[in-house]
Design a protein around this nucleic acid. Structure first.
Lengths: 244, 244, 244, 244
DNA sequence: GATGAATGAGGATTCATTCAT
DNA sequence: AATGAATGAATCCTCATTCAT
């Protein structure tokens, strides 16, 4: 048989993990730019440097690719948070941390958030998704905080932890809709503080001390800042916990 | 190109309002059964007893038809509620009424609720929709209740009414997602009670200060005052206690 | 029978000719603005102050309406021209008149010209149209001019009048295409002169000069020579006789 | 929405050029038979032995397919002619060749000619088409012939080559309209001879005195202008009758 | 004679997915 | 394993024309 002068096919063999991460990176880009429906497999393949068929070797279909991309994003977020969260003490601080983190994530990645909220969650197969599990774990932290707070006698014993969860995440979602539609903006820290206070007051035993405490601290900070300014001192970037 | 001449045409003349309501009724049925995407204009026309073309005499396109159907449903709901709501007295009762009504509506018409929340609200042209206006009016009632409560000295003066609105409607939405996906159920009355209590506690003026905390606050207050005095600076605008 | 309070129907009775001319005026507007395909019967009816159905009382269909509109325009043009044309003497002048008139018409009403050339003429039923007859009459004038010129011994006897007709009108059409597409412009007078000269030369008898004309030329020649001499200037490049 | 999964797919792989030429051949057939509007993509696909979708892999839309088909036809014509044309000597012969060739092409492929003249040329995007370029090249040959004739002293130096181009191609078009509408016939050779003679006479340097008037007037104008220039007079905008 | 609501046929186009090479 | 050409289902919308009132 004569040697084939087939220069046509450029076969580019790469380790599977690399292929997968290339595809997912490209898919993330395209989904973020175009949204799910307007994202084209062809486009994703092009940017990933593979052909369409190759995508289907690793992902059953377009939707699975979307889900995997969002799951990946979510997992990274969780991993980053988990460590810090473990260090936070006190119900109020923990709630605030969760609220702030969530608001900040949405603020950082609005497009991915939209995909998660609008494309994946409403789907009938959402339960059964790994993302569903991840999200459960994510929101469960709040439930645990509430349970712990109740056990510690800090929070009202008749509080429904799951209702608090819905209250918090629902509120955040509602508050960020306008932003997700690209029509407004919000300040994560400020919003987190307000939501936390409101919710905390709803669940705290007796006469919650959050807000007085808060305003006093604020005044202290202000006064301190002024003194520092008067003394010509530039304050260092304060720790997030105090940064408000 | 001129249409091939039809042999015989049966014209069935009806008053426009009737036609419109027939079409909307049929559309409502089909949208509810199939969802927006899988709803066929042909199917709607068939059930309404008209030809496809007739639908386009009254509605610019499929989406407008959807929006009109949902708006109609929403308007009816508002009309029914308004009267009853006017008779409710007291912040807690009013909040509960609003929460309950909303929960009950979703429970009664989950499919229409889904269409509103999933199909219409995320669209980029949502603002500008009449539905957007209706919804504003709908949620505004809660904002007004909060404002009135504050004015009456019943609710905390530092409450953000719009945040309460997001808290309430966001919570409801989150709580009903599972149901809307057809995977669970809830009791509107019970849920309304729980949400109302939680939220009300967050906004109501209470008898608060826990004693230990109070002394801390007092001490901090003193320190702050001294610092401020030391700084010799007159605080700007308003007193810090009210500034947030 | 109780008197009907039917205020609904505003019947507006007008003499048929008035109706027809209103409709045609409106149709002309719309066809000119939108072209045939994009012109809507509804739009025409609206501008004419009638309903769609009324249009069909006077015109069998949209195309007939178009044809009637163009015919009307054409008839007016013919009427205006006929008188003037009758006064023109001499083959060259007559040809120039026809060419100029045609170029000027296209320049004045490019949209209507397009409709005639692009919409009506290519149609399979063009023959049989009154417009076809009108156009025949219109172009026939040129044929007659040529025949008369031949008979008078001014034009070559082997000239095909119909070929001259195609030459002239084809040339005009080709020359004006760019303008009709809205991409260029031309000067009717100048273009008419150029076309006429070119064509005339093709059909005129050899050593022609009509005697009276010749003497004029001779005299002009003399005058020119004198003027040039008077100017004492050596003509540039080539001899003036060849310079154009 | 994902397409309902087809059970079995028969894939028939072919080299792209073959596919493209199959599709174009089928499209040519259908366009010729039915005209652009009445041609169905389905029909074309069927005859080409592909599915509708495959057509859209190679052609952006129906119109592009049409344009490509006509361009292909035109290119072949040009290629065939070019060789022969190169061998023709003498202005008259060259003009006749071009005229004859054009008449013969139309006579051979009236349907394709119609598509070019009626569907493609009037479109607003005609310029920018490759066909436009091809046609320019095609007609340019005549322009070049005229220029060469002038340079060789065979044709009148005051001839406008582009006007001759419009004269020739316009005349041909006009002459063939009836045939293109399927209502008459013509003999290419005979018609070519007649047109060529008529045109040639119009441009050949002969004894004809039409232009004498014109050239004399031109000389007068030139001389006058020089005299005026010598006298330092800026000539007023001359009357149109003299402006040439 | 006027009205104008109702008719209804008709086809290009997209793009996720497959599978022969 | 990679390629990428081929598949093919699926549907909204327009608007000239009609005809019951």
């Amino acid at each position: 048989m004569p040697p084939r002068t087939a220069l046509k096919r450029q076969v580019n063999r790469l380790p599977p993990e690399r292929r997968i991460s290339d595809i997912m990176a490209a898919a993330k880009e395209v989904f973020v730019e175009k949204g799910y429906n307007d994202a084209l497999i062809t486009d994703i393949a092009l940017r990933a440097g593979v052909v369409e068929g190759s995508i289907y070797r690793f992902f059953a279909n377009k939707r699975e690719l979307l889900v995997k991309v969002v799951e990946h994003w979510f997992e990274e977020m969780l991993r980053d948070d988990a460590e810090q969260f473990a260090a936070v003490r006190g119900s109020w601080n923990q709630i605030r941390f969760i609220v702030y983190t969530h608001l900040a994530s949405i603020h950082r990645d609005p497009a991915l958030s939209r995909l998660a909220l609008q494309e994946i969650r409403p789907a009938p197969d959402y339960r059964g998704t790994h993302l569903f599990e991840l999200n459960r774990a994510y929101t469960q932290r709040l439930v645990d905080v509430v349970k712990a707070g109740i056990a510690a006698g800090e929070l009202r014993p008749d509080t429904s932890p799951s209702l608090v969860r819905d209250l918090v995440f629902g509120c955040i979602e509602h508050r960020t809709w306008t932003f997700l539609r690209g029509e407004g903006d919000y300040d994560p820290a400020e919003t987190a503080e307000a939501i936390t206070n409101l919710v905390y007051r709803g669940v705290a035993l007796g006469s919650e001390p959050t807000s007085p405490m808060e305003s006093v601290v604020a005044r202290l900070e202000t006064a301190t800042a002024r003194l520092e300014a008067a003394a010509g001192i530039i304050p260092a970037k304060s720790s997030p916990a105090l940064s408000r």
